[in-house]
Amino acid sequence: MRKTIIASALIAASVLSTLAHAADAAPAPEHTFTSNVTLASEYIYRGIGQTNRKPAIQGGFDYAHSSGVYLGTWASNVSWLTDGNSTVSNSIEMDFYGGFKNTVGDFGYDVGLLQYFYPGSGYGNNPNTLEGYVAGSWTFLTLKYSHSFSDLFGWVGSKNSGYLDLTANYELVPTVNLVAHVGRQKVNGSSAEGASYTDYKLGVTKDFSGTVLGLSYINTTASSAWYTNPLGKDLGKDRIQFSITRTF
């Protein structure tokens, strides 16, 4: 009886081990759908405030195929087009993007298109912007270049402007990451001479099982002459940003 019990235990352990290895070897799903929602103290894009120092609610949906192809959409409230301009009707930014990305060992690459869309009326030059981007990554570092195929967010004659950024996302301890970023926005066109700038970010994130809290310090070299809105707010001035993001 003792030998039988021991033999049965060994067989059970072997079966469990086989099942565990089979689970580990299970292929990644062919189709993946995710969504996210964020509450932020301010919507800040490339170092420039988009909501006049006021909170933002943001969210998006993403689809990814196992081949590396992906599509997504994202939206946020904005106020920069209407601040001090009663002729403009707009309160939201909607982004639509798609591309292809993959990884080879510690290296990754990503190439795609991104359309910024601002539904509304009363605009001067159209703020809707189409950019293409290419990025390369290695472990915790990502270098990305974005190129505008249209005028950049309504700057007249700014087609072919570019943004280059380097971001580090380094895990200090499990679930806690240090985020450091530097970017350079080049705005083309004689009508926007002096509008180019560099932005910086240093922050930390903490992941609570899919809910991520973020705290960042953001600053830029943006000229106040170009980036002070009609309400008197310097949108490129240094500030602290808080955020909470939930991914589903």
Rank of each mutant, 00 (worst) to 15 (best):
M1A: 14
T4D: 15
S14K: 10
T18A: 15
L19N: 09
A23I: 10
A26F: 05
E30A: 14
E30N: 10
T34G: 06
T38G: 05
A40P: 07
I44Y: 02
Y45H: 12
K54C: 06
D62P: 00
D62M: 07
G68Q: 01
L71H: 01
V78Q: 12
V78M: 09
W80D: 14
L81D: 06
L81M: 12
N85V: 13
V88R: 09
V88W: 04
G98C: 03
Y109C: 10
V111E: 00
G112I: 00
Q115T: 01
Y118A: 09
G120I: 04
G120V: 03
S121M: 07
P127F: 07
N128R: 04
T129R: 11
L130N: 08
V134Q: 09
A135G: 15
A135H: 05
S137R: 14
L143F: 14
F149E: 01
S150G: 00
S158H: 04
K159G: 04
N160K: 07
S161Y: 00
D165Y: 15
A168G: 15
A168E: 02
K186H: 13
K186G: 06
S191G: 08
A195K: 14
S196Q: 02
D199C: 05
K201Q: 12
L202A: 13
V204A: 12
T211A: 08
S224Q: 08
W226L: 11
T228W: 09
D234W: 03
L235H: 02
I240M: 15
T245C: 03
T245I: 02
